[in-house]
Design a protein around this nucleic acid. Structure first.
Lengths: 212, 212
DNA sequence: CTCATCCCACTGGTCTGACCACCTAATGGT
DNA sequence: ACCATTAGGTGGTCAGACCAGTGGGATGAG
């Protein structure tokens, strides 16, 4: 089992008290210490790399990485496409999370954030992605910002970014400046894409049967 | 690059029109068809297995799997611990998404959903996870439900599920029955954990430097 | 002594060939 | 018809080899 090898490596990480940026033992040394073949070590390391926990640099070595990245989801995206149902859910979820980000940003935005957003809104045509990227950063919730970025990346791969009237941006900006989260939510609601409003009769199937 | 190999394998899956349950070519055959070593094929397959897209059975072969599983995230959870910042974001995001699910469920819940929830609320002590699992299913948004499940799993790994007074469940249930999403949101807001309200001064650092 | 250059040991990336344990299906005997 | 045997194919693992980068230390020129 390479799962066993994974645990061993994790134990080494803990025991050696490895912090982000630190170097792991080489693959050959790990293989020797764990008493397994190098290929098994490699498969375990691949898993860790896939999770974004380590980073391998050819000719240098393997290094601990800051937690939080998950390009794994980007990869999953490649396979998740071509599914109408998933697309509809994606569009809706993205829209909903954008509302959450707006609300949070209203409470926590700094003066610099507002300045930055003003600059973005001044540049026509207004860059939707950049606007929300800034809002996401201003939200103060890194995890939610991250989820948004992933969803945004998904969506961009098969649909153009939503287009809003300039007036909409102005209203959002005003709400952010006055820290009026209710107003921001209302503005966002007013710009809800029509495709999201009518989804009645659309039910979940029990897709969890295979979770064994 | 094994990323290249991954794409090749994906192409084979698409071209051969492989459906869940179907058998993939053997590792040796794939290696020959793609002109790479078997170890490279194995590393690519490991990635797919990690994503829950395929299943390997020793002595039999490799098979397509229903999408949806993500033991990968459970593994990630093991490593994500020991990070206060991430925990705070997680708790907040989970709470926010629960609010979204409640709102969606108000609009789309069926009569059966309400019955199911009534049953859950009747059984004391009320099972928070089961309650929201049902709400998530009733939301009609599989993606958002899935995100919630992941977050919930994370949270459960280092904190007990939130405890609500029975009256809170009754209020939510009433809002769901009357399809009053504004009421549901208000109820949820009233039960906002105190730890989430005060997070001023908490800013994002630029954690993305390592995304190169 | 200082600095630039070169070289070599070491790293991850890949391929090959070889076993093993396991499963399946065809085989052949009863 | 039934069942035990067997041969071939499969994933799992390992060892060894070579490649292509990297880095630091030895070397030599100034």
């Amino acid at each position: 089992m390479y799962a066993e090898t994974l645990k061993h490596i994790r134990r080494i990480i803990v025991e050696d008290n490895l912090a982000p940026g630190d170097k792991l033992p080489s693959e050959r040394e790990l293989a020797e210490r764990l008493g397994v073949g190098r290929s098994s070590v490699r498969e375990a390391l691949r898993a860790l790399e896939f999770l974004g926990l380590i980073e391998t640099r050819r000719g240098e070595g393997t290094y601990m990485r800051e937690v939080g990245s998950h390009q794994l989801i980007d990869l999953l995206a490649m396979f998740l496409l071509e599914n109408e149902r998933a697309k509809a859910d994606l569009a809706e979820t993205k829209w909903l999370i954008e509302r959450l980000l707006l609300e949070l940003a209203c409470r926590r935005r700094s003066a610099e954030d507002v300045d930055e957003l003003k600059k973005i809104v001044r540049q026509k045509p207004i860059d939707f992605v950049r606007f929300f990227q800034t809002v996401a950063e201003a939200s103060g919730n890194f995890l939610l910002a991250r989820i948004w970025r992933v969803l945004s990346g998904f969506a961009a791969s098969f649909a153009p970014p939503p287009s809003l009237a300039d007036a909409g941006y102005e209203q959002m900006l005003a709400a952010l400046e006055r820290q009026d989260s209710a107003k921001a939510a209302a503005v966002w609601e007013a710009h809800r894409p029509s495709s999201l409003s009518k989804r009645a009769g659309h039910r979940l199937t029990n897709n969890d049967a295979h979770f064994r």
